[in-house]
Every structure is written in C-alpha cells, then in structure tokens.
Design a protein around this nucleic acid. Sequence first.
DNA 1: ATGGCCCGTAGAACGGGA
Length: 262
Amino acid sequence: MPLKITTWNVNSLNVRLPHVLDWLAAHSVDVLCLQETKLTDDRFPTQALRDAGYAAIYSGQKTYNGVAILSRVETVGEAADVVIGNPLFPDEQKRLISATFKGVRVVNGYFPNGQAPDSDKFVYKLAWLEALAQWLDRERTQYPDLALVGDFNITRDDLDVHDPEAWRGQIHCTDAERGWLSSLLDGGLVDAFRSFDPPPKSYSWWDYRQGAFRRNAGLRIDLILLTQALAQRARSCSIDREARKREQPSDHAPVTVEIESY
DNA sequence: ATGGCCCGTAGAACGGGA
C-alpha cells in the first residue's frame, strides 16, 4: 500500500472545514498535515473529522498559527510518539507538531513568516529555523524515515518565484532563509517536489489580490523534505492547483507525496 | 507609484499574512 502524505495551509480550519472534508473524500490521503488552523484546541472539529475516518492531533491557539495532523484510521491508524513544538525552543506560538505513522516520522511546521528582513519577526524566524535544524539532527538519528513538511515560508531559489526581480531580497527570498534551506538539502534532505523534475512556474501559494492565481503569480513555499531513505521510496509529488480554484479557497494549495509500501 | 484580498477579533478598523 502506498502512503500518501499531504501538507496544506488552510488559513483557518473554521472557514475551510467543508473544503477539507470534501478534499479528503476525493483524495483519501493517509496523513494530512494542516497549518494555520487558527483554533484553540477546545474548538478543534475532532468529531467531524472522525466521522470522515480521520483521527487528529493538534496544537492550536486563538487567532494565529495552529498546526494539526490528521491520519486515516483505516490505513495508518492513530499517531504515535506525538511531540508538540520543538523541545529545544520554548515558543508561545503553536507552529510545530510531530508524530510517527507506520514507521514514518512526520514533522509538520508552520514556519514563521518573518514579515520583512529588517523586522523583529525576521530575527524570530531565523532563531526558530536554527533551533529546528538542531532538533532535526537529533530526530533524524532516531527516525531514519523522516518527512519535514509544511508551510516553510521560504523559496528555495528563483525557480520558486513568479517574479524574481520584484521579490529579490524580500521576505521568503533572502539569502539567510535560502541558506538555511540549502544547508538542510546539503545535509541529505530531499525536496520531494523538485526531485520529480516538475514543470517551470509550479507554485503552491498565490495572493488573494490582483487575480494572482489567474495570472499564476505565485510562490512555492509549501514543501515536503524527505530523508534519503524515504526519498528512495517516493513515487510522486504533486501540487493540487484545483483546490485553489474552489469558492472561498485557502491561498495555499495542498502538496502531496506518495511513498511506496508501508 | 500604491494597493487592490482574506481571516479573526472585533462590534470599527486593524494586525497579520506572503
């Protein structure tokens, strides 16, 4: 049985729950990692998802951030070894949740936006990234089959940017952010989507304004990174642009990797 | 040139997103 893992920034699970349920019914992925749920844990729609066949783990807060992992009970069952946040980086902001499914370690992150390179939020972003890299080094020794997924808020290079000149040096495109991502790739993680030689101008996020989706004026910032052991078993990785065409869509599209035999 | 949208918290605009 292939194992399908999806990452999707839903920009409010309250608003997007009908879309998520429809999408799950149509795609039947095994693990769905969500970001920007914007829900406190007491308001998480556990029952509606359970009725759809999915168990959930989650870490949320009011208004901002919030992450969750849904798992298809019939195929992969419940999450094991759940870790909330980064043990090396105490953080009020709920941006990280990790668990194991059928031996695959899934680390799901809503990476800080950073706002602007000269802002305090950018300082926080770089600290958050550095701490994540340190913790990942540990996790990878414990879990050889690991997937780091989520809304990275980083473009790998100009191929991930619709207008590189306009974005040069801007947030998501700075040398510091890209350098951090490069060091992860140099350290052996594989950018699943890029590894399948995708067509140019493949993006995962489009601004709500200016008809950006219609013009395909987007960025690829939602990524799935796999350890080499896991990447060898990856069969495909795709971005579901159809989800972005729906009424009241998230500004991000789901990204799915299919892994051979679990 | 700038901002143009969406969401949550409000209970009007505003912060934040990217």
